[in-house]
Write a protein that binds this DNA or RNA. Structure first.
Lengths: 203, 203
DNA sequence: CTCAAACTACCGAACGGTCGGTAGGGAACA
DNA sequence: TGTTCCCTACCGACCGTTCGGTAGTTTGAG
């Protein structure tokens, strides 16, 4: 029984029921311990939450930076970033759900320490979009808003994605990338583009 | 002191702290009553949550249907739907936040009764997009995924929008509509389009 | 023998919810 | 007009339960 086992179990329960609806009893039961025994590995329930949040954010930052450092044109880099972010999110759903939805359960001082780290991550996306605008690959727009939109689409996935659904994370990422890069409106020169990802238009 | 006063106060606290972190004591204090007195107006904490959820969903459905029934081309109708949805969401932030983030705190039977109503609302958006594809206004794509993407962007706004921020809900809606309809990639025939909403490209 | 890891037993506080009771304002009737 | 009656709105006190967390003890491998 390790600390990471506890964090993993806690992340799963937090993501399913929420932080406040999950008791230390619940977590203890999930790792087959008595509640008191948890306190040998962690100091408090808040510390578990911080542990999960840091773990999830570290994972995302690490993968995002490796994408950012690749020498690619902006649109290809954005496609890859979307792919990596979304697959990471959906393959670590519990961690990600806690990161995105439960951070407000942190007590004020811990919350204040978490937010700047999260904002620094969002800045990576703004930089990526700004880079594309300056190189002329992207049309002029507010990079902050475009980043919010992009992250919003992907973050919201954790509220509805089911691993037994019809689409894989990769397929979802490809569709989102198409939508964001090319838009929804049909243009004359854009019809019958060969790389369309979704022929099904009925339901 | 009316039942709606209690729902309003509860929505505000639920949206700030979450359902499980809000006690009946908290709600009572917000409406200047004793905790016991709340039970003269509502049967349980769960009933308050259901009341808030229904209230929010009724509001959104009503406004969405009035947009859907207008005889407009798909792109104009989508623009208007985005505008209406986003402004409703952000001008009733507390209600909307509870609808979007706290519905999982419903007990199983009430949750099972809520989800189909919410799904019926999402269907309105799929219909709108499908309509645009069939009329040729939109390029071929999966309407379900496009709707998820669109709703995701807007729903995520309630996690970051602040009414004292630099952009109004209307401005945010216009930018999101541009992004979704036209995409991010710069095309030769699309540069210097006159209706750009955001000249600021530096941070 | 040591020490980490687990246990049993317990704590004060807070939870959602219920209880019996009361203040006060109309309506009905003498 | 005075009295009785009922009803809405509210209250203080309390219920059983669960919460996060602590104290002290046992277990078992190196």
């Amino acid at each position: 029984m390790t600390r990471d086992d506890i964090l993993t179990a806690a992340a799963q329960m937090f993501s399913q029921k929420g932080f406040h609806a999950t008791s230390m009893q619940d977590i203890a039961q999930a790792v087959h311990l008595q509640k008191a025994s948890l306190y040998h590995h962690v100091a408090s329930k808040q510390e578990i939450l911080v542990g999960v949040l840091d773990w999830a954010l570290d994972l995302l930052i690490e993968r995002m930076e490796s994408v950012m450092n690749q020498p690619l044109p902006a649109d290809a880099k954005l496609r890859q970033a979307i792919q990596v972010y979304l697959t990471t999110l959906l393959e670590h759903r519990d961690l990600a759900a806690v990161l995105l939805l439960e951070h407000r359960s942190l007590k004020p001082d811990l919350h204040a320490r978490h937010i700047p780290r999260r904002d620094r991550y969002e800045q990576l996306w703004r930089d990526l979009i700004l880079e594309g605008i300056q190189s002329g690959d992207f049309r002029k727009c507010d990079p902050a808003m475009a980043a919010k939109a992009l992250l919003g689409v992907m973050n919201w996935c954790i509220t509805w994605y089911r691993s037994d659904g019809p689409l894989s994370p990769q397929e979802i990422a490809a569709q989102f990338a198409d939508l964001f890069l090319e838009g929804l409106v049909a243009h004359a020169e854009a019809v019958n583009r060969p790389e369309s990802h979704e022929p099904n238009t009925s339901a």
